[in-house]
Design a protein around this nucleic acid. Structure first.
Lengths: 125, 125
DNA sequence: TTCATATTTCTATTATTCTAGAATTATAGA
DNA sequence: TCTATAATTCTAGAATAATAGAAATATGAA
């Protein structure tokens, strides 16, 4: 995940329809769902949905695979957690959001302080 | 943090100049920095910067306060961690990103599984 | 083959966003 | 009050994005 990736991911997620599509795909999990099902459930015309799905795919947030006449879309959870991690590591402060790898569980752990610590006058670190 | 907040935050962060401004403000920490300093450091005309700062402020990512002739902008870390938390809780799966509150430290802790667990065929949870 | 289904691509229209020049507002100091 | 500084608002042009109708492509089934 780099800044360019993050920018296009934010752009993809900043549109109401696309965020709805992505969250619905999250519900479908790793199994994903065909475009038609998504369009039906969200009441979006096929061509409009296709436009948004390709936007999400271009950004890296979803993947797709043809199965018969359908195309199965699925959320890319690795990419999404990468985005969360990027935000904590590169758009925040270590005293506010700290990231460490727990090698035992194979998880990254982010600790979020729920408020900003006071800072000394003139401090610019 | 709700969906509407998240949408406008994503929109604000999806623009290269604004992301640069936000990340610079993060460097300045809770002390913040006057608009002029930001414009100088990033080489952005004052009116253009003002447009982007007000976009970030409208989204809730930054706050501002006048001090003399200057207006001090600062990143809103509480809002930003709220956004990260929203993403983990509402745009992901609990087996991929789980959030719990550690009442002892007063921190929220997010555990990020670094890859997607296999899922059974036909599972749609 | 032919037909139906699933989805995408092409196209045009409308709407939104970005940029920066010019003018304006707010404050501090002489 | 007058001047300089810091920032914003107004404005318009250029670029980009969203929407959906119509046409095209890909697949499976009769």
């Amino acid at each position: 995940m780099n800044t360019e990736n993050a920018l296009s991911a934010f752009s993809a997620l900043s549109q109401e329809t696309r965020l709805r599509v992505f969250r619905l795909l999250v519900e479908y999990g790793a199994g994903g769902a065909p475009a038609g099902t998504l369009g039906e459930r969200l009441n979006i015309p096929a061509n409009t949905l296709s436009f948004h799905l390709s936007h999400l795919a271009r950004a890296g947030l979803v993947g797709s695979e043809r199965r018969g006449r359908s195309i199965i879309y699925r959320a890319d959870f690795g990419f999404f957690t990468g985005l969360i991690r990027f935000m904590a590591e590169n758009c925040c402060r270590s005293d506010v959001a700290s990231v460490r790898d727990d090698s035992q569980s194979g998880c990254a752990v982010i600790e979020l302080a729920n408020c900003c610590p006071p800072i000394l006058q003139g401090d610019r670190t």
